[in-house]
Amino acid sequence: MEARFPRREDIPRAAVDFMAGQVKVEAALFVSYAWPGRTIEHHRTQIRKFHDFQEPTVGDEDKLADWLATKICPVEMSRDRLRAALLTRCREDRIEPPKATRIERVLSAAETLFERNFTHTTLNRLSFDSVDKLEELITPPPAHGEF
């Protein structure tokens, strides 16, 4: 439903019991399933293939950051809403969402890119006189005795 693989602790007991009944195994076997390792990676590959999803690449993350910066950040700066937009876009593009730490990197990159573009665009719209006056405002006055 969320187009991502859950952590073991995210899976409700009722879901484990239901799925165990579906595949006709004991629900107690769930605790012995090896979450790290080749078996789970093989199972995840099969699931991705069945649902036509791909693992995220660095290139995908860069495209997501650019998309967020140009389409979402101009109207929304809440981290939670940016994260929700990112996850929705991943589902639409059939990309497995990046891990939580990578999501934070994508969000930070998008915010930085948006702020840089916003500043550049704003600066280009100002007259030279306005830029000079703004620089005067942010330039500290000389210390006492300096010229």
Results as ranks from 00 to 15, higher is better:
E2Y: 03
R4T: 05
R4V: 00
F5V: 09
E9M: 08
E9Y: 07
D10E: 15
D10K: 01
D10G: 02
D10S: 08
I11P: 11
R13L: 13
A14C: 09
A15S: 14
V16K: 02
A20W: 03
K24M: 12
V25Q: 09
E26Q: 11
E26D: 15
S32H: 14
Y33G: 08
A34I: 06
W35M: 09
P36M: 04
I40G: 04
I40R: 14
E41F: 01
K49Y: 09
H51T: 08
D52M: 04
F53N: 05
G59L: 06
D62Q: 15
K63Y: 14
L64T: 00
A65C: 03
D66T: 12
W67E: 02
A69H: 04
K71M: 13
I72H: 02
C73E: 04
L82Q: 03
A84Q: 15
A84E: 14
T88M: 10
D93G: 06
P97T: 01
P97S: 01
P98C: 03
K99V: 01
T101I: 08
R105F: 00
V106F: 01
A110Y: 07
T112D: 15
T112N: 15
E115C: 10
N117F: 01
T119V: 11
H120N: 14
H120A: 14
L123H: 05
L123I: 06
S130V: 11
V131I: 14
V131L: 13
D132K: 06
D132L: 07
K133Y: 10
L134M: 13
L134I: 12
L134D: 07
L134W: 06
T139K: 04
P140E: 05
P141A: 02
A143F: 14
H144R: 13
E146S: 11
F147A: 05
F147V: 12
